[in-house]
Design a protein around this nucleic acid. Sequence first.
DNA 1: GCCCAATTGGGTAATTTGGGTA
DNA 2: ATTGTCCAAATTACCCAATTGG
Lengths: 90, 90
Amino acid sequence: MDTGDRLLTPGEVAALFRVDPKTVTRWAAAGRIGSIRTPGGHRRFRESEVRALLEGEGMLDEAEETERPRNTGPAAPTGPGPGPANAGMY
Amino acid sequence: MDTGDRLLTPGEVAALFRVDPKTVTRWAAAGRIGSIRTPGGHRRFRESEVRALLEGEGMLDEAEETERPRNTGPAAPTGPGPGPANAGMY
DNA sequence: GCCCAATTGGGTAATTTGGGTA
DNA sequence: ATTGTCCAAATTACCCAATTGG
């Protein structure tokens, strides 16, 4: 079984998820996806993990997330819109 | 366990890190990874050291960033020398 | 989204390595 | 069995462009 120990670059993961490489970096920084750092500081991602994330989310109703750190704070999201709540403190 | 004093070629190390052999050569030139030179000038890398570097944060809840001081000085070129001096001590 | 610095990868030419054979 | 030569693959070093990180 090729679980796929191959490593993917941020750009490749971004292409798989149709997001910006910066977003993938943000996931890694937040610990939402495992990352391996090269001695130079760049990140590499395990293809097996990426594939698991790609497949595991789209099957049944997503009533259960794996382990999402809930919002720490009295967040009262009255906003119904599924908009990208990006604070953008950068 | 045989952490392996085996020597790996730049191509092997590059495949493990999913980088180009040239990048591995740069790591060696920058002192980020120990290297042994053959009389012909080619480099060989210790598998134990490579694995230690490879053993990054897998899927542990990891949100910290290893502080990476910029290259401010000549790091130890070939370091460990004789003995089971395992690098990776940070 | 933007910026810049650092790292990485591609290209080519020359040398070294390793295997097979004479 | 030892030595020598040939050839294919890998590695090195230089350049510059693209990707990545903060």
